[in-house]
């Protein structure tokens, strides 16, 4: 099975998020970037499918958010081809524009299955995977945790996650786009030495694409840190001080008997 995987860079939420001078967007220059976690799972799922049944894995990414290291890591993990879509503006495009760009590149591939993380935390006016499916005119289902070859030829079986650790097993006729929440196993680790080797051996392909018009129907007026309506009472002091205070609170409430 030939599989295309979309990888996106997102701001690392562990780091401070700065807002730019317009007050309507993140300051992309100061953001610390990491691969979108669900996309990383999509890559892992694609590699598992390839290892089980052959075929190829092509990674497609927009050239935004210091993506090169993520792409070299993907190559080190086992991706066969890397397509990096050049952008004039290093700011990550909105989901509709990103989907249009990615669809142009993926259409040139012979990919029966497209896997992409079901969400990215910096999307607010669109959700990339279904928009991409619409652009490719392919069926879509998302919130998928685990994909396996289907019982019938030309199909896969995807497990869609619902609350309560309940899954719906779905049959998906290919070609299709799936929004991945999690792979069947955690994303694999690759040692730095293999990533360095991939940096020397991997050539990124840069497909030609046409940048779509901006969708102005949804605009951000203000981006800000939420004011806490009911912030927690912060317990200060050393670790042992806090532990003692917590034990007292739990005892007073009858929780610790």
């Amino acid at each position: 099975m030939n599989i295309a995987v979309v990888l996106r860079q997102v701001p690392d939420l562990v780091e401070t998020l700065d807002i730019d001078r317009t007050g309507t967007a993140l300051d992309w220059d100061t953001a610390s970037w990491i691969v979108n976690e669900c996309d990383d799972h999509a890559l892992e799922q694609a590699l598992l499918l390839k290892e089980a049944g052959g075929g190829s894995v092509t990674v497609v990414a927009l050239d935004a958010g210091d993506v090169d290291n993520t792409l070299y890591t993907a190559a080190a993990k086992g991706a066969d081809r890397i397509l990096k879509i050049p952008l004039d503006d290093p700011t990550p495009p909105a989901p509709r524009a990103a989907a249009a760009l990615l669809a142009q590149a993926i259409r040139t591939l012979d990919a029966e299955l497209v896997l992409v993380g079901v969400q990215a935390h910096n999307e607010l006016d669109g959700v990339l995977p279904p928009l991409l499916a619409a652009g490719l005119e392919r069926p879509y289902v998302g919130v998928i945790r685990g994909v396996q070859p289907g019982a019938e030829p030309g199909t896969v079986t995807a497990c869609k996650e619902f609350p309560g650790a309940v899954m719906a097993r779905m049959q998906v006729r290919l070609p299709a786009v799936l929004g991945i929440l999690g792979a069947e196993q955690p994303p694999r680790y690759v040692p730095v030495s293999r990533i360095r080797a991939a940096m020397k051996a991997t050539q990124f392909e840069e497909p030609e694409v046409t940048v779509p018009a901006r969708d102005a129907r949804v605009t951000v007026r203000r981006l800000y840190a939420p004011a806490s309506a009911a912030r927690a009472e912060i317990l200060s002091g050393s670790v042992s001080d806090v532990a003692a205070r917590l034990v007292t609170i739990l005892a007073e409430r009858g929780i610790l008997k």
Binding site: P11, L13, L17, I19, L26, H121, N122, L124, D125, A216, R217, V218, T219, V220, R221, R222, L223, Y224, A225, P226
Partner: peptide, 16 residues
């Protein structure tokens, strides 16, 4: 809307 996992909020105008 919640943005970046709820670390930020965005006030958004929808014109259509």
């Amino acid at each position: 809307t919640a943005f970046c996992g709820g670390k930020l909020l965005a006030d958004v105008q929808v014109t259509a």
